[in-house]
Amino acid sequence: MSTVKKTKSTGKKPVKAPKGPAAVALNADKATSGGITADDLGVENNDQAPGVRRRDFIHIATVSFAGVGAAAVAMPLVSQMSASADVLALASIEVDVAAIQTGQSIKTSWRKQPVFIRNLTPAEVEEANKVDVGGLRDPQTLADRTKPGKENWLITLGVCTHLGCVPLGAAAGEVKGEYGGYFCPCHGSHYDTAARIRKGPAPTNLVVPEFAFISDTVVKIG
């Protein structure tokens, strides 16, 4: 035990010994000349071996701590920009679709974006199912985009996937495009009766939002 202690203390000594007197000398020097320079802080301390100094620890610890604090403060400053609770509270809507006749469609608003709800005619359903899915830009069947047993209810966002315009075709008398679905007048994207992209610059089909029939005639979107 004692030998271990001894070796420990002697092992420490060479490190400590030059430090004590050096610090005292620095202080004494300070008191007599009065001048203090940055050197006193150990910025360029010649009395010690080069490399990592004890003071580096406190520098790094201080700056790290301040950095973590600054990052913590930055979080609320950034997160205040994201959607607020009142916006999120309107994240889902319920729509009664009982009044929409076959072949009719309505526009409604969900998350401040237009939504098309379309009651497809049997002919339109047939036309959509006829298409060879493999040849589409964004291969999806009508069944993929509707609920089982309710294939005639096509619910999509009314936002063109190209650059966000509202396509025509939902209201009576509007151009439905070459494929009888929707047509975006901004840059000429044509969507078919399943609102799939068939021609024009849009990359994907009109987005089908998350939705569910909560009764026979009421749809919950979102």
């Binding site: 979080m75 609320p76 400053l77 997160s79 205040q80 994201s82 607020s84 609770a85 916006v87």
Partner: peptide, 13 residues
């Protein structure tokens, strides 16, 4: 009040 209740971290700001 909207800032206090709805905006993210609005109460803090």
């Amino acid at each position: 009040e909207h800032i206090m209740r709805d905006v993210n971290a609005g109460w803090f700001l």
